[in-house]
Design a protein around this nucleic acid. Sequence first.
RNA 1: GGGCGGUUAGCUCAGCUGGUUCAGAGCACCUGCCUUACAAGCAGGGGGUCACUGGUUCGAAUCCAGUACCGCCCACCA
Length: 882
Amino acid sequence: MKELAAKYSAKEVEDKWYAYWQDHKCFHSEPNEKEPYTIVIPPPNVTGILHMGHVLNNTLNDVLIRKARMDGKNACWVPGTDHASIATESKVVAKLKSMGISKEEIGREEFLKHAWEWKEEHGGIILQQLRKLGCSCDWDRTRFTMEPALSEAVINTFVYFYKKGWIYKGVRMVNWDPEALTAVSDDEVIHKDTQSHFYHLKYFISDGNGNPTDKYLVIATTRPETIMADAAICVNPKDERHFWLKGKKVLIPLINREIPVIEDDYVEMDFGTGCLKVTPAHDVHDYEIGLRHNLPVLEIIDDHGRLNEKAQILVGEDRFVARKKIVKMLEEAGNLLKVEDYTSPVGYSERTDAVIEPKLSAQWFLKMDQLAKMALETVECGRTRFIPEKYVNTYRHWMENARDWCISRQLWWGQRIPAYYLPDGSYVVEATAEAALKAAQAINPSIKAEDLRQDEDVLDTWFSSWLWPISVFDPEMPGHPDHKPNADLAYYYPTNDLVTGPDIIFFWVARMIMAGEEFMGKEPFSNVYFTGIVRDKIGRKMSKTLGNSPNPLDLIENYGADAVRIGMLLCSSAGNDIFYDEAQIKQGAAFCNKIWNSYRLVKGFQVADIPQTESQKVAVEWFRAKLSETIGTVEDHYSKFRISDALMTIYKLFWDDYCSAYLEAIKPAFGQPVDPETQKATLGFFEALLKLIHPVMPFITEELWQDLAERKEGETIMYAPTPKAEPYDTAVLDNFALAMETVNGVRGIRNQRNIGPKEALSLKIKAGSFPCIPLIEKMAGVKVELVQDLGDGQGAAFLVRTTEMGIPLTGMVNVEEEIEKAQKDLEYQQKFLAGIRGKLSNERFVNNAPAAVIENERKKEADTLSRIETLEAKLKQLKESK
RNA sequence: GGGCGGUUAGCUCAGCUGGUUCAGAGCACCUGCCUUACAAGCAGGGGGUCACUGGUUCGAAUCCAGUACCGCCCACCA
């Protein structure tokens, strides 16, 4: 670097160093004798693009990994992507649809070809974007959850749990998404209060021969289109109003099918009419009632949400259309008593926003009881720590109530369930078709390969991502607990920290812990850091439809990656939502510029063989201590995952202490050289600061570090050791602080009275000695004089702690104003003193409070007294001088 | 409905095991400065009865209870 521009330009710098790091394999890790530090990336959707949430998450990950690397650990950050079955499949379906192709039409194989093409085309864009952010992932280790080895791991896992007896196939009421045509898990259903109607319907009592009598009961329902599937009417056995219905049969309106009246405690007497229509096929609770009372299950809604022929009427109509029509029919038939407005929670598919249809279907389930128990213990006994801790409660609650995991999805994009059906409907579960054939032949020797039919469904995406911390290292491991972990897995597992959002605590975090405990007998990570959700300035979630989500790449382009990283971290305390504001990124850019310019200054120092001045000596000594002190604070913040505090601490050290205080103190007059000792110390401090801030701002620090000294090809700040705190004398810090308070006092007076910073003043300090006088003189632009008496009050007087100081300013003082100020101050001090004395004269305080507290109060009392004395003297003098 | 968390300067937040030299930080704001590293800057400054009400205590932003509002999670009375 020859000439340094006055402004820092990130663009030129960032690509250069990222390429340099990659060329020199700086991100790559192999097992060695050092202590490992491992992070696996929360794999983004393979076809996803970078949004602000990713920026936050991956910045945090990168800070942690870079810090660990500089701390001397063997740091490994494994990147990769997730096949995201529903999300990806629906994108491919949409694309095909736009081409006029339906997935059913082209069939599974052809569809998957399209899907893979799509993946090749769009997959991995996000990984490129992460490079722009500066993420130091070990790209040689990039994984994809549907790559062959990892898919095999998933299949093996399935077979393993099946053979263990924990996977079973069952007919269950599942959440059916009629748009995506798949079951979704409970967690993928979002309940939203939805405006609808409560229809009160008359069901006439049957005479026993299927003919209506003139008596009727009334039920209230929100779903009149399902009445054709009713299996019973249910009342509470204690409900006196309905005793007369006992043993009666009623007729379903419009179709006149006869159904019984049954009794069950489930029915609330004070809700609706107290009569519940039981529709086992289309309501979860009704299904359960049906089981208890042995009711027939009649399904009248098909996979697409349309009425089928079993409904007898309105066949082929969409459920919502059918609802409107049947209401009219009921009204005409005289069965509709009244309609009320009603708001009730309705389940929507997280993915497609379609109204979920409870549907009975055959699905595969994984038993959760044992796994949840193990995974709960992992967290309860602290082997995995949550940050912030509050999520442990949420986690416990879920684990204690975990229901079996529905792992089958009616999709094609994903790992296909390795169950193979024999012609007679029985099935075998094996990892491969060959093994399945063998197993089938063991049952029936005449079976041939073509007789076997593999299950059509694929596995839930999370059934592959829960293996991630294991499978990225050794895909052989999951499903084979007896397998000896390979070198990578043995070395890198368990990983150290996981950074992710609390929204996937159950989907992913809990299940990774389960898989880790089951297959490795060990938790997959020691700490889970939960970030908040990134919101816009006014608290709305970032979303495409709102258009309030900035494109991170544009921000990087405009402000630089370092600035974007700072901007995200500044407002991100763990677990709190992030209110994103571009102003914070601007602040980051300003900081880059500050660092840049401070470097221009120190780099430009001319060195000459001259002695170090007294103020330089003091400043160097002070900053050395300050640096050590701050390093201690920073390390403490990191150890508690208070990343934004760590950043702010370094930010202030750099800006306030190094630039505003230290550099101003040692800076020679314009054109003057600096002595070698000061220069060496100054550059040394600068390098230490670069190293401290490097995990947060990788690019600018590399740029300047490379320029700071002659570096060998391949050398990088990435591997420079984190500066260590050294023992320091706190008196040095105290003295400097006192001196700076004095400087501030002088500056304040200059400001009040409009005296320019260059105008020479003299400062009288009423003391026998005072620390750092040369420094005060340089920083405040004064000539210091230690005196016993401040003189006649012709000047500005002020107090620094308990020391009286004065600046002679003949003719520049407004005595009235001074008196008023002193009077105000005096009053405050007197009130303060009264408070302390009140306390000290309180017997119960003196008797009960710890000695140290009382001691402190006495010290305060003494200090305050001394200030009051000073103020009184000053006032007297001022009044006399009038 | 059940659970969890929050309510501190205009904004975003920090304040650990209770002690009025702790009511703080950053940003924003106000005033004065283009002082040759930086106007993306420098120097100085104002601003909060720590949501409300009680209680425990010699003493509470800090502990307890209740109230109000906000957020999240779980369940979902047809």
